[in-house]
Amino acid sequence: MNKKISNQKAWWFVAPVIVLVAFNAVIPLMTVVNYSVQETFGNNVFFWEGVKWFETVLNSERFHASLGRQMMFTSIILLIEVPLGVAIALTMPKKGVWVSVCLVFMAMPLLIPWNVVGAMWNIFALPDIGLLGRAINALGIDYNFTSQPLSAWFTTILMDVWHWTSLVVLLAYAGLSSIPDAYYQAAKIDGAKPWAVFRYIQLPKMKRVLTIAILLRFMDSFMIYTEPFVLTGGGPGNTTTFLSIDLVKIALGQFDLGPAAAMSLVYFLIVLLVSWLFYTLMMKDEAQ
């Protein structure tokens, strides 16, 4: 006879994790869910609203516009940062004293706090006193990121590329340095051209780290807040108002807790869905 052994002691081992997850994920998320289905006029009085806020958010042109800007921004920086990062990693030295020098230089932007990056680029790009702004204007190009949408986008993207390409570089470099020399020798003996070496040895061997790099860059850039907030404040007009900036405006600027909560949930689901899709597609090959 099978006798089920009852042992409740294990709960004590799981308890700390449950408490931790509850405090840093479940409770805040449930608070947001709670807000998203109610309306409040202050004084802690709430009224049930059902899915009204979700309908509002999903039909809101303002949300569509920020989502569009957000997707545009994320796509552009991924298209620039990933190939650029891989290219830089390929040109980095493989051994010798220069390795650590290069790595330190590469890691530098990653160590700078986000709001400092924003402030730095703000000053750097100012058309009247900033080095970059003055230089571009000196070339005869009319550039002012505080008043021209195109200039604002250009500056924001440049800033993000400056700040985050290093992450892709470091990950790609780690992937590259894990390839044994013998692979390159074998390719050389086969007479493979540099492109073939990249396509059939380096790229497949970098695939895992690149997947992680793209995922991290997608998530981070999709939730970007501090740097554009400090740099442009979402302007000129709404042209660099990305999703988080818009969300903060609604939640804290207008104090529309219900719509803001609904928007947060939609936002969260988009990030989750895209990340999941991405990971599944990239790893499909591996599973076979």
């Binding site: 013998a182 074998a186 050389k188 003996i189 007479g191 059939y200």
Partner: peptide, 20 residues
């Protein structure tokens, strides 16, 4: 150059193209 020598080599590690 290696490519012009008509040599082939087998290494201690099993070296093959992973995606072929």
């Amino acid at each position: 150059a290696t490519q012009k020598r008509n040599v082939s080599m087998v290494h201690q590690q099993f070296i093959n193209y992973p995606h072929f």
